[in-house]
């Protein structure tokens, strides 16, 4: 399977799966879910995330969303009040793209078991914590919390602590 078609399929599969969670999916949430899928669940899509004011980000994910929209694997709607809403496109069918490798599907399923219902704000916090944990694995929890708060002052330390302990309770987080 071509690498870009695979990535477009992954994006569309996440959009499809998110629909069943009855939680909206915008560009921020999709970016963070892709980040967590790659960095925590080992779904290697070749993205290179680094840190921006809006958390871990790779502009190639945005390019892939544009491409997936162009070939109708995704429908991307924008509303000034609510922002982006992304749903699977009409051409996202097994006939049009071939099947995503089973292993990829399993990783997306595992991602949704742990992160599927978090909203964009919650995902941004968790993605940033994961970024810090990977960047500085030897930090103690209290220092991780301080570092996240320095990066993202909009989250208070209780919220960060709760998210960190939730992440650590899943066996996949270091």
């Amino acid at each position: 399977m071509d690498a870009l078609i695979r990535r477009a399929c992954v994006l569309a599969t996440i959009a499809k799966r998110r629909k069943t969670c009855k939680t909206s999916l915008g560009k921020t949430a999709l970016m963070k879910l892709v980040y967590i899928a790659q960095e925590v669940y080992g779904l290697d899509l070749g993205y290179r995330f680094n840190l921006y004011t809006y958390g871990p980000y790779d502009s190639d994910v945005m390019g892939d969303i544009d491409y997936a929209e162009a070939i109708d694997f995704l429908d991307v709607h924008y509303n000034a009040e609510s922002g982006y809403r992304i749903i699977p496109g009409t051409d996202f069918t097994p006939e049009s793209c071939g099947s995503l490798p089973k292993e990829d599907e399993q990783k997306i399923e595992a991602l949704f078991d742990d992160f599927g219902t978090f909203n964009a704000r919650e995902l941004e916090l968790r993605a940033t914590i994961i970024y810090v944990l990977k960047d500085a694995p030897s930090l103690e929890d209290k220092d991780t919390i301080k570092r996240v708060q320095k990066l993202k002052p909009k989250y208070d330390s209780d919220e960060i602590e709760e998210a960190l302990s939730g992440l650590k309770s899943t066996s996949r987080i270091p």
Partner: peptide, 12 residues
């Protein structure tokens, strides 16, 4: 101010 999805994200 960058408002996306369901929350105001911050200064950009």
């Amino acid at each position: 101010e960058d408002r996306r999805d369901d929350f105001p994200e911050g200064l950009r």
